[in-house]
Design a protein around this nucleic acid. Structure first.
Length: 645
RNA sequence: GCCAGCAUAGCUCAGUUGGCCAGAGCAGCUGAUUUGUAAUCAGCCGGUCGGGGGUUCGAAUCCCUCUGCUGGCUCCA
């Protein structure tokens, strides 16, 4: 007998050679029916793999992330089996599970594949799933593995096997499909009750654009049909919230072929929204000791030679523009830091002045490949809520703290309650990849780690993800329907101060090198607005809404009164409009609801007589009658509460 | 840039296998209506069917090409 310790600390005894499934049956048949895999001593394995020693064991079901991954990975195999049956002779690359489902990269040789073929493949998958095929694990020697796939004529698998160590190679066979695979897998295909192939895309073999492009088919599976339905509903919801759709509907921004790819045009209502964001951040930054600076949209090529960006990115940038007479070259600025360095350099600095914080809503231009452009989240011209902090190495920690304060304040203000923080540090194996002294790196990395710890931030630490010039902290948020977005970033930089020969005079009367911190809490205005639109589904918080209130006169007779109300509300800086069309009230309300205007003010005979407005809140309904003054107070206090001064 | 799909009025979409002056709803304009918490009625305007080339007696429809959009891949200061 062996002792198996479960997560709750209880110990079960099972006979040697039993597997996780046997153990589950000991607990309950119902549990056993749901076990997808098992985690043994921290490693996920097949639930059917025999156990020979005492171990800590967790049974994994659909409710565990690892259970889902296992199921999806097994689904990739099942899809491959279905495809092989339907299209004999195709060759397989890799087929992993991903965050939402799985994919398989397949060389379809002479077959043409498009989304039209999905339903056929889905049908086949479900058919095979019903057979409850088991996934049989088999250890094979490298020679046998090579032999199998050379007979099959699958050069991709052969290439993968070449890189593997003999003795560590396993095959999994389900139904008629055998695949090179390290596992683990679900007990049998019967768990897969619903499948949806989601997209087809080209993907280079091993991500290398010089190699053959395979066809990647994405899919997702579920243990219950109902879950697939819910997933499809979520996708529908995401579609409705798509910032490109809402941006058009709400008149926020547009694109023009004539202006150019990836160059957003902000419409008046979008500009109001963006201006609110900028004003808000400017106020927060002013309080935090930032000084605004303004720099031009272009910079001499020498600026980027000094910064090093020319060498690194010159080829992938918009080509430089030239002065007509001298032939001097200028780049559209791809970032603001070099300009800010020169501002710092424009006068000598004492240690007493540090930290110096230059902030600018700087518009930058980057050449993105045409296929990469996407709404406002991926553009060629965008405005960063940029700032650069010049400080001493000892000040890094407190500056980091200050920036995190701002970031958190912002996330709270916008109701992003689920924030994921990633700290990116050096790869300890390859110190040569980074510039700057070990001592400085350690100081900065420790500062970041300490700050995270002291603040109790739930941060993921990733080694080897740092930029070559310094460690960084990135902020991701989860939106209202669970999608992850990368927003703000804080980066420590030892490189640019060196390249621009930035100095300050220390207390010892000697020159010292300052450290630079790049930071952008929103990331870019474009991206942030896009994420915000999708997060709130276009129902902006009152303080950001382009129109905060709309006055709906019952008929033309109350037009004068409506204008009087408008004037009063404008005096209170409430963004208000009037719907003076000759329409019925129901129609005006409907249109205002569709435009997602937070407050509708209905005015007719009663209201005019008593100097009041009848208030209807977007999405909620009638709130009753308020005097104009009371309504203005209500709005303003609501706005103040939302921005949380 | 690469793979796949798509492109019909400002927007959302019809337009069977190529065949009369290319349709609808919404929006817009004009008029009537003067309206009380999610769509008042009528009329009008609006399109070289993304651009170019080809096949055909005849092309929105078939072929080629370019442009743009969508979903991926690759890259991202």
């Amino acid at each position: 007998m062996i002792n198996i310790t479960l997560p709750d600390g209880s110990v079960k005894q099972v006979s040697k050679g039993s597997n996780a499934l046997d153990l589950a049956r000991q607990i309950s048949e119902g549990l056993a029916r749901n076990v997808l895999a098992a985690k043994v001593n921290g490693k996920v394995i097949d639930a059917t793999l025999p156990l020979y020693e005492d171990a800590h064991l967790t049974l994994l079901t659909w409710n565990d992330p690892e259970g889902k991954s296992t199921m999806w990975h097994s689904s990739a195999h099942l899809m491959a089996e279905a495809i092989e049956l339907l299209y004999p002779g195709v060759k397989f690359g890799i087929g992993p599970d991903i965050e939402n489902g799985f994919y398989y990269d397949i060389d379809f040789c002479d077959y043409d594949i498009s989304e039209k073929d999905f339903s056929k493949i889905e049908k086949k998958i479900l058919e095979l799933a019903k057979e409850k095929q088991t996934y049989q694990r088999k250890e094979v020697s490298k020679a046998d593995a090579l032999d199998y796939f050379s007979k099959k004529g699958d050069e991709y698998k052969l290439e993968l096997i070449q890189d593997l160590e003999d003795g560590q190679i396993t095959f999994y066979k389900s139904g008629q499909f055998t695949d090179l695979c390290r596992g683990p897998h679900i007990p049998n295909t019967g768990f897969i009750k619903a499948v949806k192939l989601t997209k087809v895309a080209g993907a280079y073999w091993r991500g290398d654009e010089n190699r053959k492009q395979l066809t990647r088919i994405y899919g997702i599976t579920f243990p219950k049909k109902k879950e697939l339905t819910a997933y499809l509903e979520m996708l529908e919801e995401a579609k409705k919230r798509d910032h490109r759709v809402l941006g058009k509907e709400l008149g926020l921004f547009t694109f023009s072929q004539k202006v150019g790819l990836g160059l957003p045009l902000w419409l008046p209502r979008g500009a109001v929204l963006r201006e609110q964001l900028e004003q808000y951040l400017k106020r927060v930054q002013k309080e935090a000791g930032y000084e605004p600076v303004i720099t031009p949209h272009i910079g001499n090529v020498n600026l980027y030679k000094t910064s090093g960006h020319y060498q690194k990115y010159g080829e992938e940038s918009f080509k430089p523009i030239k002065t007509p007479v001298e032939g001097e070259e200028f780049f559209l600025k791809p970032m603001n830091c070099p300009h800010h360095c020169e501002i710092f350099n424009s006068s000598p600095h004492s240690y007493k002045e540090l930290p110096i914080r230059y902030a600018e809503f700087g518009t930058v231009y980057r050449y993105e490949q045409s296929g990469e452009l996407h709404g406002l989240t991926r553009v060629r011209g965008f405005t960063q809520d940029d700032a650069h902090i010049f400080c001493t190495p000892d000040q890094i920690k407190s500056e980091f703290n200050g920036v995190i304060d701002i970031v958190q304040q912002i996330f709270t203000a916008f109701n992003f309650n689920d924030v994921i923080i990633q700290i990116s540090l050096r790869d300890p194996q390859h110190p040569e990849k980074y510039i700057g002294s070990d001592e400085n790196w350690e100081k900065a990395e420790n500062a970041i780690k300490e700050v995270a710890e002291e603040r109790g931030l739930n941060a993921i630490v990733e080694y080897g993800e740092a930029a070559f010039y310094g460690p960084k902290m990135d902020f991701m948020v989860r939106d209202a329907i669970g999608r992850k977005w990368q927003l703000g970033t804080i980066q420590v930089d030892y490189n640019l101060p060196e390249r621009f020969d930035l100095t300050y005079i220390g207390a010892d009367n000697e020159k010292h090198r300052p450290v630079m911190i790049h930071r952008a809490p929103f990331g870019s205005m474009e991206r942030f607005v896009a994420v915000l639109i999708e997060h709130c589904g276009g129902n902006f918080p009152l303080w950001l809404s382009p129109d905060q209130a709309i006055i709906l006169p019952i008929s033309e007779k109350y037009q004068n009164y409506a204008e009087k109300v408008l004037l009063l509300l404008k005096k209170h800086e409430i963004r208000t409009v009037i719907d003076d069309r000759s329409e019925k009230t129901g129609r005006k309300i409907r249109d205002a609801e569709l435009k997602k205007i937070p407050y509708m003010l209905i005015v007719g005979e009663k209201e005019e007589a008593s100097g009041s407005v009848s208030v209807r809140k977007h999405g909620e309904g009638d709130l009753g009658t308020f005097s104009i003054e009371d309504f203005a107070q209500k709005i303003n206090s609501e706005v103040n509460k939302l921005i949380n001064y």
